[in-house]
Amino acid sequence: MKQLLYSKKLAPYLFILPFLVTLAVFWVVPLGRSFVMSTQEVLYGQATFIGLGNYERLWGDRIFWQALFNSLRYMVLTLVLLVPIPLALAALVNSNIGSARIKGFFKASMFVPALTSVVVAGIVFRLIFAESDSAMMNQVVEFFGFGPVRWLRSDLTGLVALLAIALWRWAGVNMMYFLAGMQAIPTEYYEAASIDGANKFRQFIHITIPNIKPTVVYVVTISIYGGLSMFLESFMLYAGNNSPNNQGLTVVGYLYRKGIEENDLGFASAVGVVLLVVVMTLNISYLVASGTFKKEAA
């Protein structure tokens, strides 16, 4: 034992063993099982090998492509909203404008939605976007002179509701990430820049942005994954997995419908495998493009 603990070669592996075991048990094994199941037709106590049959059905499945389109669209739009807006908010909080107490309160209140359960939030948003003309959003549009909107009945307005939840829930979290990145930037850089005559905006572009790049890369990566794997928000907003014309159906929602609601676990596994491939392809290409895998220049 003593030899093992002091061995330079083996000890590191011993120390990361708990992580490796967890990774194997809860990630690698289920992943492998999913690959196997995606080539099977699974019924109670019997699994028949059917080769690529599930993938063939998936390829020609209009609803799957619709779900994938919905997820991709949601992911891209959350990126468009959830990177610039929190970045601007973080810059605002990090600046000298306003009193520290008000900013502290602002930070705290921006973060509260992330602590709220999606289930509760989804129900509240469903009521806010309800069809009746006394619902909150319809009161708002009425104020601007428009008639009541059947928010959750048509595609684009339903998407607006989903994005509203995402923005409300994640803007604060992303703002915290950016703020942490900004506070790690040495103030000397800004001093030097202001001596050279750079205004606040140029300082933001040429000092802040390059210095928080690792944070931006991190936020974009988890947002790609988060957007594509979104399920619960839509499930709660539409009070179930069946939205009109599948307008709120996401890839994970389709996996859930096929595997759990219709007991077609083989097909659902194929959906999961395809989702994994899509997420990994997008994320790895993004990480390569952003230079994360390159060795740091010395």
Binding site: L43, Y44, G45, Q46, E262, N263
Partner: peptide, 10 residues
């Protein structure tokens, strides 16, 4: 029908 699929319903 979901629960009587296959030859060995649960």
């Amino acid at each position: 029908a979901n629960f009587v699929k296959g030859e060995n319903p649960p």
